[in-house]
Nucleic acid binder design. Structure first.
Lengths: 237, 237
DNA sequence: CAGTGGTCTAGACCACAAT
DNA sequence: TTGTGGTCTAGACCACTGT
């Protein structure tokens, strides 16, 4: 990382995660840290603010900066709400996919508005069943713009679409809007995710954007309820 | 707001929300805005970065800053994941409560670790059924530290605990850690939320912190699946 | 009071995109 | 080449906390 504030951020982050800086202990004040890392106060503050946003550091005017305790931990795969990567990278486990459908459709009014295209413009429609350690855990329904994301093929769909977009096409994924909700499982969920009718799904609806601000994907993902949760840390600004 | 960057942030935010600045249009460059608002570039950038984090603005080096399109909108009550307020303020609707239980318990090891107290320390345990427009929509199980949050009584519990903490006790709530998941409804959910056994709940687990970094609340909230969703906008930093 | 973090400035220099 | 946003600086001043 050639950016000074990100470099400092990563160094301190590592110290917190590895426990060199213990929870609930005070760290050095800004001025001292500026000298240690040879930077200005503004740069130091930028680095420390990132740690605050991550929930790793707590700062109080007149008092100091303290390492925070660690987060909630449950028996499910915990996906950070702020993560922009797809399942392949988020799950940090063996992910595989089965293509259920892959075809061209015409954009509905609603999806057209999310993807900033015209109603009835052609779109890729992809539905995939995704496995972790061989177990089916998510059904994804994805809509993409063919002219924006060309060259989608079976090989790509069987792996990570996000890796294809970032590594092969050379685009950068920079942001996303998500809504998360619970829903009753339908017959398709029950069939593919091996759920019984009383078992629900965790549905995530998403629009994802490239770093030029253009939306490139609209998707609905339906997760096994007992395998996933979404975590977030929020600070008042 | 006496802070310059928050003031500028709010002014521009209002213009975007009211449509004075239309989606997908370019706004003035930083230097021009600095002149208009009589501030330095760093201050302007701080204000604009807040808008970027809100998903209201998109910025690209060498190109400019653009107003973003508006977010996903569904038929449910959409709670922003970044919100720190309780249901009373988030729902923006008529909220009322019924107290199911209110007693002292001794902290389990797990909850003690979240609240940074010792195992078997006394804690308030409060369960409330919460109504929007008279309909039961959430069951909340809340644990608080009596010495930290004194004076809890029926009047407070029937209204907003958060308002009591901020307005009466004069504390500031500054951050929270949340996990969100889907779950099958249990018999208590079914009874109070009027769900049938195939209908799930959206469960949110939370630890909330005061602005001195001290955790003051651990809670589990089980929401009617058809009434709520959680939304978030994430940007890569 | 001394020590802490928060805000703000005026300017330098750089990276990137469009022309 | 021009115009854009991104980073970084050195310092000023202020607000808050604990002693």
């Amino acid at each position: 990382m050639e950016l000074k504030y990100k470099d400092i951020y990563n160094q301190i982050k590592d110290q917190i995660i590895q426990g060199t800086l213990a929870p609930n202990t005070k760290i050095d004040d800004e001025i001292s840290l500026c000298k240690q890392y040879r930077c200005s106060r503004m740069t130091m503050k930028k680095a420390l603010d990132l740690l605050v946003q991550d929930g790793l550091l707590f700062r109080k005017r007149g008092v100091g900066s303290f390492v925070m305790g660690q987060p909630l931990q449950k028996q499910r795969i915990s996906l950070n709400e702020r993560e922009l990567s797809g399942l392949t990278r988020s799950a940090k486990q063996d992910v595989s996919s089965k293509i259920l459908e892959f075809k061209l459709i015409f954009a509905s009014k609603e999806i057209a508005s999310f993807l900033n295209v015209k109603e009835n413009d052609p779109l890729y429609y992809i539905s995939r069943l995704r496995f972790i350690k061989g177990e089916p855990v998510v059904i994804e329904y994805t809509y993409m713009i063919p002219t924006l994301i060309p060259g989608l093929c079976q090989d790509v769909l069987l792996g990570s679409i996000y890796n294809y977009i970032e590594n092969t096409l050379g685009y950068k994924i920079s942001s996303s809007k998500k809504s998360t909700r619970a829903d009753k499982s339908n017959s398709i969920d029950q069939k593919y995710l091996q759920l019984d009718p009383t078992e629900p799904v965790l549905e995530v609806e998403q629009v994802a954007y490239l770093d030029n601000g253009i939306p490139f994907e609209y998707s609905i993902s339906r997760h096994r309820y007992d395998q996933f949760e979404f975590s977030i840390y929020s600070v008042r600004i």
